[in-house]
Amino acid sequence: MKPFAYAVAEAPVQAVHQLSARPGAKFLGGGTNLVDLMRLGVESPELLVDVTRLELDRIEPTATGGILVGAGVRNSDLAADPRIRAAYPMLSQALLSGASGQLRNMATVGGNLLQRTRCVYFQDVTKPCNKREPGTGCPARTGAHRDLAILGASEHCIATHPSDFAVALAALDARVQITGPAGDRALALADLYRAPDEDPSRDTVLDPADLITAVEIPTSREAHRNSLYRKARDRASYAFAVGSVAAGLSLAPDGTISEVRIALGAVAHKPWRARRAESALTGNPATPEQFRRAAELELAAAEPLPDNAFKVELSQNLIVAALSTLAGVEEA
């Protein structure tokens, strides 16, 4: 870890200014990923601007009936919030399935969204990695890739985004509020992450001095309330997902699907919103057969590698299992 200066930000605009003024500066939130990466030599900021003392730690209702979550809210506080638990169960469950109690007490909402991939090559500075050092190559394709992407990857990078929380936010159509050098703006979470394409080094569309200040969760609907997050992993707890799904479902009085929301985790560089599956299901009967067909349709685009090919079936099964639970129907 290189020596670095440290400053406590007092207001978002000032924090953004501090970063704009000093290339090599970074915001410090909970530190659960940044400090880890600094110790590995993956990140070496010259200045850390501590944004945890900004007043970004509120969970407040919005004028339109949604909920605005400050970017500094700790994961554990958000997961325990009774409004979140009642109106967006998938969100609370996603948070609680991530990391450990200690890390959830530290990790912030904003930092969770911006955490980096846990690909073992990205984290090892003695090895090439296009995400860490563009142009050096991707050893994961022929190396350890069991945990890596099957959807939306490029020949340059097959990293997965590690967040559980972001998967639920994607399914909820959450928006991200940003204060940047050019002022304030908001983005759909779906538009926050970039595809790896030719340059996997940039995970998001954000400018280095952009500060996420809040996440806006839309007004709760039936498909938000009747929702769940299901995560499959190699340990019963304290492990990143091998596959996960955030799903929400509402049924019309005739039993057909009026709204369905599905996002997959651990399969792509971003939370993977399963739009194809959603449109195939909407208006159709809520049966396991329909769920299976839609899941297969969604995963048809998968381009797995030898050691992660199982994620195709795993993700399909997660979709079918989650929707069957939400619809109250038995799987075959």
Binding site: Y6, V35, D50, L103, N105
Partner: peptide, 10 residues
């Protein structure tokens, strides 16, 4: 919390 990931200055 995990004290290893907290910078003392914070």
């Amino acid at each position: 919390v995990n004290a290893c990931l907290i910078l003392a200055v914070t």
